[in-house]
Every structure is written in structure tokens, then in C-alpha cells.
Nucleic acid binder design. Structure first.
Lengths: 130, 130
DNA sequence: AATTTAAATCTACACTTGTAGAACTTATCT
DNA sequence: AGATAAGTTCTACAAGTGTAGATTTAAATT
């Protein structure tokens, strides 16, 4: 899973591909152009670069428009990128990030309950270990 | 607080400045060169760019070597970067990031207790609100 | 003072990224 | 079939980034 570095724009296109499971460049363009003003050929360039980087592949079938689908899963991308981010911005210590997110991101009761359960599990693991 | 975008390397230098509070380029270079092989002039270029971007400033005093210190705090940088990261990689939803970090980052009992307390506070806020 | 050394400044360059125009190729619609 | 539209491919380019050599300047040492 040779996850070469992906640019902002490449990530944005990949997000769309994850959402749609697979799509043509015009489809991806339509999605993104709904938010930002960007030309078709620009999106197409990004799609090509994603293909070159091995992050997506084209499905051979349909004749005219090329259908692409992701080769990398969300996790393939998010795990290494999270690691990198914590290193770059927090010097490797994820705790300030955690408390910031827990303290400020929009979370409902259900979310909080779930996160609490994750902590509980961690605690149990710690207890079991020694 | 015009936080222009900072590159990886710029962030790395800034981390050192935060750690040291203030430092000369040779000092920063020594720190970074301890981990990676990088030339003095390379680090100096990055320092100059940080200065141009207004992220650091030079202290006028000492005659020969120029001392720099950060103009941006860790939070000035980490808050907007975290936002951007969550948007880029998780499409704006921080919950998968939270559960990943809580479930996998190295955390000791004390850390977990503290994070639990943050959650507890959030829950109370929710209860008070309605 | 003359020499060595440390640091600063200047210049350069290849690669990546965002951005898109122009030209060519199919389909599609009268 | 001819014209229009939709999509693909090719080419380009400025800004940003990582990287560093060469040159100049200032400080320290003999």
C-alpha cells in the first residue's frame, strides 16, 4: 500500500470517489464545482495525477467516459496522514489534539457515550497488562 | 493573526523555536541535523521564509548571530491546521479521528482520566443546554 | 595584523501543486 | 451526413517547497 503523498486537491477528489464509490471525471467535477469555481480540465488533471500515483484506477468497460474508482481506502490514507499530522503540528504528542477535539468539536450525547466506551476499553487493556 | 500556510519544513523549524523559545539558525540547524541530514543553508532558507511569512521575528540585540523567536503560538498554528486537516482527510467529521486516536495512540491512565473528565464536562454542558 | 572559522547572504534548481486553454475525438441530435 | 455537444488528451505556467553551492562578512585565534 505505497501511499505516496497526496495534495489537498487530490484528497478532495478522492473524497468524492469514496462517497460515490466510482465516478467519471465529469461527475466528480460537478460535485466539486458546486462548491468552488473550478474548470473541468483542472479536475481532470488531478484525476490523472491520482491515477499516476496509484490511488485510483480506471474501469475498462464503458466506451466513451472513463469511470474511476479508488484503490486506497479511507483508512489507507487517514492512518498515515494522521500520524504525519500529529508529528508535524504537535511534535508527535497527540494528547493536546485529543483534548482540543474532545473539548471543541460538535459532539452529541451518543458520540460522547461512544468515545467514553473507547476510553473504558483502553483502561481495561492497561489494567490487564500489568 | 494572519496565519499563512506553513510547509512541512517550516513547521519543523517552528517546532524547534517553540521548544527553545528563541534560537539562532545554527542552533536550529543542530537540532534538526541530529535527526535528518540537512545543510545549514537549507535551514537558513526556511528560517528566512518563516520570517517573510511573519511567523517569526529577529531580535535586534546580539551583534553577530541573529536570534529568532516565534510570533505565532502553537495554538495560532494548530487550531486552523487541525480544522483544515479534519476537512481534508475526514471530510469535516472529526469523530473517526477521535476514536482512532483514543483507541490507538499511546495513553497512560492519567491521560485517560483527564480525557474522560473533558468528556464529562461536555456532557454536563449538553445537559445544561436543554 | 594575518589567518582560520563560523555565520549570513545570494543565487539556483528541480519537483510539486493548482490552474486552465487548445486541440482532438466521439457521441448525439437535427 | 453535418453540426453540436461532451469528453479526453496535451501542453503550459506561476507559485511554493525542499535542497544546497558559492560568496561575502564578521568573529576568534595565533
Amino acid at each position: 500500500m505505497k501511499t505516496r503523498k497526496l495534495s489537498d486537491f487530490e484528497l478532495e477528489v478522492l473524497q468524492q470517489l469514496w462517497r460515490l464509490e466510482q465516478a467519471t471525471t465529469p461527475e466528480v467535477h460537478k460535485q466539486i464545482a458546486a462548491k468552488r469555481d473550478v474548470k473541468y480540465s483542472t479536475v481532470r488533471t488531478i484525476v490523472d495525477r491520482l491515477e499516476q500515483k496509484g490511488a485510483i484506477e480506471r474501469l475498462p468497460q464503458a466506451g466513451r467516459a472513463v469511470v474511476f474508482r479508488p484503490l486506497l481506502s479511507r483508512k489507507d490514507v487517514s492512518l498515515p496522514m494522521t500520524r504525519r499530522f500529529v508529528d508535524r503540528v504537535f511534535g508527535g504528542d497527540s494528547r493536546p489534539l485529543l483534548s482540543h477535539l474532545l473539548g471543541n468539536e460538535p459532539l452529541n450525547t451518543e458520540d460522547l457515550d461512544y468515545l467514553e466506551s473507547v476510553i473504558a476499553r483502553r483502561k481495561k487493556d492497561l489494567a490487564d497488562d500489568d
